[in-house]
């Protein structure tokens, strides 16, 4: 694969996309794992399918439609959660299905042959274009900057939201910033692993780092490193076995997590016993 990497633009794009996705998954993955926002992120990802469908129907780039839908659903979930009166679990579940349903309806309204949507559902890292890469760079820079710029505020918010709120440390602003960051990240990941598989890419690196490292900065950095390993590992396996890249990346990530889990739980037992 290494020789081909220098030969083919699409492979270079794929590797670049993998690196950018790892940065995103490191930051956002860490936050959603600590903040227990995994289902919310899954909901936002799936809701974006409605935007893909709408994009096809209106003849605009489907990924922009996905971006719109994921932003709207993220902010709606945030607003409803703030307002109270119902469990955010319920809202997330409904948005999850609603987005998919809208996508299917929009697609069936598209005249002529239905487009092939599997690249949005399962990703296609080998088809990443320069325009996609540009979008990913922008998202990665924006998300990382917001995280680094307010690092201490994030730390306070993630550790003890109630206390931060009482101290007036911008909790509501952080919450909505976070929702926007999750929506952006999910859309950036759709290109690589797709709507359905995006969740594993967000969770597995951060969850593995959580089992091994104790410091916040270390966890974020190592989540990124694990992300790179999963991306490149999955990509080269897919290349050798001629299988779907997104799915291989997810397999590598989940197997890695399981191995770390088993290894650390043995160590834990020895320490206790």
């Amino acid at each position: 694969m290494l020789v081909d990497l220098f030969k083919y633009q699409f492979l270079q794009n794929a590797v670049m996309a993998g690196l950018l996705a790892s940065v995103l998954a490191g930051v956002i993955g860490f936050i959603i794992v600590e903040k227990k926002m995994i289902m919310m992120s899954g909901g936002i990802a799936h809701a974006s399918y409605g935007g893909v469908g709408l994009g096809y129907l209106l003849g605009i780039e489907p990924i922009y439609g996905a971006l719109g839908f994921s932003l709207v659903s993220a902010l709606s979930v945030g607003l409803i959660k703030r307002k109270g009166g119902t469990d955010s679990d319920i809202v997330i579940g409904l948005f999850w299905s609603l987005g998919m349903a809208l996508g299917i309806v929009f697609i069936s309204l598209v005249p002529g042959y239905p487009p092939n949507l599997s690249s949005y559902l399962f990703g296609n890292i080998l088809a990443v274009t320069q325009a996609d890469l540009l979008m990913m760079v922008v998202v990665a820079v924006v998300v990382s900057l917001i995280f680094l710029a307010f690092f201490n505020n994030w730390k306070a918010y993630l550790f003890d939201e109630e206390f931060s709120g009482i101290r007036g440390s911008g909790v509501i602003l952080l919450e909505f910033l976070l929702l926007v960051m999750v929506a952006l990240t999910v859309v950036a990941l759709i290109r690589i692993v797709g709507i359905i598989l995006a969740l594993a890419i967000l969770i597995a690196p951060a969850a593995s780092a959580k089992l091994i490292f104790r410091r916040m900065g270390m966890r974020v950095v190592m989540s990124m490193v694990f992300g790179v390993v999963f991306m490149l590992g999955g990509l080269s396996l897919a290349y050798s076995f001629n299988t779907a890249a997104g799915a291989m990346i997810v397999l590598v990530a989940v197997v890695f997590y399981i191995v770390v889990y088993v290894a650390t739980s043995f160590k834990l037992k020895r320490r206790v016993g």
Binding site: N153, K155, A156, D160, R167, G168, S169, L174, R214, M216
Partner: peptide, 18 residues
């Protein structure tokens, strides 16, 4: 949460706003 003892205390010194 991955945070040290001294870091927790320091968070008490955060100013209002971001």
């Amino acid at each position: 949460f991955p945070i040290s003892v001294i870091e927790v205390v320091l968070l008490g010194a955060l100013k209002p706003g971001l």
